[in-house]
Design a binder for these strands. Structure first.
Length: 254
DNA sequence: ATGGTCGGTAACCGA
């Protein structure tokens, strides 16, 4: 079983990269964020031709999540009980006996802003729901764009980012509270290169200068830890012409 | 030096 997550920043623009990457990596599951595509315009045909089924929860201009899979997805959820939110950021489905949760966590804009309050509130709601989801589905994967760099080693310049958005203590605390439910950060289950990042700002030549953050994550439930064999970030697509600002993250299981 | 670059959509907003 090979699973992956990728914030594509517009599926329409990135479809060629996604199709190339699917062909090369052949994941069983790929969770996408920021598809920015209404469901009616979802490129179902192109993905089917590549051998992938898709479930999705899209909206125009902003947000949008999708789960691509080789086998069919069941029990699809797009909204949480008690969380009324027009923003399409959540998608859960059962694939091949695995519960897969695809999240596009709010960015939060700036510490102290309305969007920041929304982010923390959202993280709290999802925390409560994940607690239940973990009871229902012992084999649970939660992956996506978390918009949180969990530790200073996940930040190219921790001093510059100190208590800034994506790095603030309340955000990191929320991440730790999720882990405390019984998840492991798959990436940290293995030795990794220093300065491993998954997102680089388009501005300031961020990628070329390695000015990145690790904000895209794969959380795995305890039951899956034993069978996890690898987790890595594939920086290759970030170097392509007209790239997403995020790189895909993959995890492999026996 | 508080900038810069994308994507979507049509003057800016969000990231």
């Amino acid at each position: 079983m090979k699973i992956a997550t990728w914030n594509v920043n517009s599926l329409r623009v990135r479809l060629p990269h996604v199709l190339d990457w699917l062909k090369r990596e052949q994941p069983d599951v790929l969770a996408l964020q920021e598809t920015k595509t209404e469901d009616a315009n979802f490129p179902q045909k192109e993905l089917e031709t590549a051998g992938y089924q898709a479930v999705y929860s899209g909206q125009k201009t902003y947000n949008g999540v999708a789960i691509l899979s080789r086998t069919s997805a069941a029990d699809v959820i797009t909204d949480l009980p008690g969380l009324v939110d027009p923003q399409r950021r959540i998608l859960a489905a059962t694939v091949n006996g695995w519960r897969v949760v695809d999240l596009y966590v709010p960015n939060g804009s700036e510490v102290g802003s309305d969007k920041y309050a929304y982010k923390l509130d959202w993280l709290g709601h999802v925390h409560s729901w994940l607690k239940l989801e973990l009871l229902r589905h012992p084999r649970l994967v939660v992956m996506g764009d978390f918009n949180i760099a969990p530790e200073d080693r996940d930040v190219h310049d921790p001093m510059a980012w100190n208590e800034k958005i994506l790095c603030s203590t309340p955000e990191r605390q929320a991440f730790q509270e999720w882990l405390a439910l019984g998840f492991k950060d798959a990436f940290r289950c293995f030795d990794q290169p220093e300065k491993s990042f998954s997102w680089w700002d388009y501005r300031m030549n961020g990628f070329r200068r390695h000015l990145g953050l690790r904000i895209d994550h794969i959380l795995i439930s305890s039951q899956l830890v034993e069978s996890c064999r690898a987790c890595r970030i594939d920086v290759e697509p970030r170097g392509l012409e007209r790239p997403s600002d995020h790189a895909p993250v993959l995890a492999e299981f026996v």
